[in-house]
Structure formats: C-alpha cells, structure tokens
C-alpha cells in the first residue's frame, strides 16, 4: 500500500504537524515504505481472534471517587509559555 501526496497532507493536518511542500513527497515515500512492512499482516487469518490491547488482557482498575490530588496550579503554570491571572494564554480563537 502506498500513500499519496494528498493523504500525507490530510494526515499531517490531523496530526497538527506543519509539513512544507518540498517535504511532502519525502514523507509519502518513507511512510509508504513503512506501510509495505505493515502489509504483511493482510495475509494472516485473524478470523475470530480478539484484538489484544493490554498484554495481560487487564481492564482499567477502578478506585473510590475521592480526592487524591491537591491543587498545584501555581507550580504547573510556572513552566507554561504564557499565562495570565491563572489562565493559559493562546492566540485569539474568537473575534
């Protein structure tokens, strides 16, 4: 299976990665090479085989719904690129 230029652009957008025009075909090539590797799986008969998401088939452990964490906002925001009055700032979204 090979991946087209348009698909590279679509995937890059989904992944929120800026890809310059001159890099698109390079990505198409290297991603296609990896997909060729993955295509080996097509021939395997997996009828009735359950997908394995956790090596122990374990489910998420649940706990009591009680407060276990205290508030660390000030420390966490100290390392943020831009904050004001306890809020994270990003470029304006709505006019």
């Amino acid at each position: 299976m090979s991946i087209s230029i348009d698909e590279v652009k679509k995937v890059a957008n989904l992944a929120r990665l800026a890809v310059s025009e001159d890099k698109v075909s390079e990505y198409a090539n290297s991603l296609s090479n990896i997909l060729v590797l993955a295509d080996q799986l097509e021939a395997v008969d997996t009828t009735g085989i359950l997908p394995l998401a956790n090596p122990h088939d374990a489910l998420q452990r649940l706990r009591e719904d009680v407060v276990t964490e205290t508030n660390h906002r000030a420390e966490y925001q100290k390392i943020a690129p831009e904050v004001e009055d306890g809020l994270y700032l990003v470029p304006q979204v709505i006019d």
């Binding site: 991946i3 698909e7 679509k10 995937v11 989904l14 992944a15 991603l31 997909l35 993955a38 799986l41 097509e42 395997v44 997996t46 085989i49 359950l50 997908p51 394995l52 998401a53």
Partner: peptide, 21 residues
Amino acid sequence: TYALSAGYYDAYYIKAQQVRR
C-alpha cells in the same frame, strides 16, 4: 495518525492487535 484514521483503523490498528494476540 494514518493507522488510526477513518477507513484504516480496522485494516491496520485492529488487525495489528489481533496478530499481537
């Protein structure tokens, strides 16, 4: 992102998890 995207999820991601088993 490609393997998880609509239309490829079953063919790649689920298939890979089945073979993982």
